[in-house]
């Protein structure tokens, strides 16, 4: 058995060459844990260890909880945190969105609803704007694919921690809310 598993030195090469090129691998099957040998009788009756465990959990019992009460207490997030979305505006204060549906297409949660309409004729170089642009924040998973998909840099994520509301309707952010967000 062991003779089969240890690599044989090739007959055609000298011993030194073989030693350099193929160091004998350590077989995993040989590293057997032999723990039972080393355990003293104190360990084996196990009770002191149980007591030690109980003391550890008791120590945790008296420490301060790490919980924060979420809707009332807000976590401090870094500036690079990506939370709620907003729709951006260009230099003239017009929204950049052209209702191309790329964000809605990319969204894995299907939380973006867009309905397009023709842009006002005086908006130069723009054909299409969203009449309806809604994000259902309950469905949103904040993956940021919409931001990546947007060809116009019209949607981005703020570092606002997702809000909590009492009704489902309040979680649906419409165009105006997203523009002001």
């Amino acid at each position: 058995m062991s003779a089969d598993m240890t690599p044989q030195t090739p007959q055609t090469e000298t011993a030194t060459e073989a030693a350099i090129e193929t160091p004998a691998p350590r077989l995993l099957t040989r590293t057997v844990l032999k723990t039972s040998q080393k355990m003293s009788w104190v360990t084996r009756i196990y009770l002191p260890m149980l007591l030690k465990g109980l003391m550890i959990s008791l120590r945790e019992f008296f420490r301060k909880p790490v919980t924060f009460n979420y809707p009332e207490q807000r976590p401090k997030v870094s500036e690079r945190f990506r939370g709620e979305h907003r729709l951006t505006k260009d230099d003239e204060g017009k929204m950049k969105c052209v209702a191309c549906y790329m964000c809605a297409t990319a969204c894995p949660a299907h939380c973006i609803t867009i309905e397009a309409e023709a842009a006002p004729p005086e908006w130069d170089g723009r054909d299409k704007i969203p009449r309806v642009f809604e994000i259902d924040m309950l469905k949103c998973i904040y993956c940021g694919y919409c931001v990546e998909a947007c060809p116009k840099e019209a949607i981005e994520m703020t570092n606002k921690v997702p809000q909590v509301y009492q009704t489902r309707q309040e979680f649906i952010y419409d165009r105006e809310k997203l523009l002001a967000n």
């Binding site: 420490r63 909880p65 009460n69």
Partner: peptide
């Protein structure tokens, strides 16, 4: 409550 404290949570409140 006790399990919460053992896990450093607050528990029902």
């Amino acid at each position: 409550k006790v399990s919460a404290r053992f896990q450093r949570r607050v528990g029902p409140n």
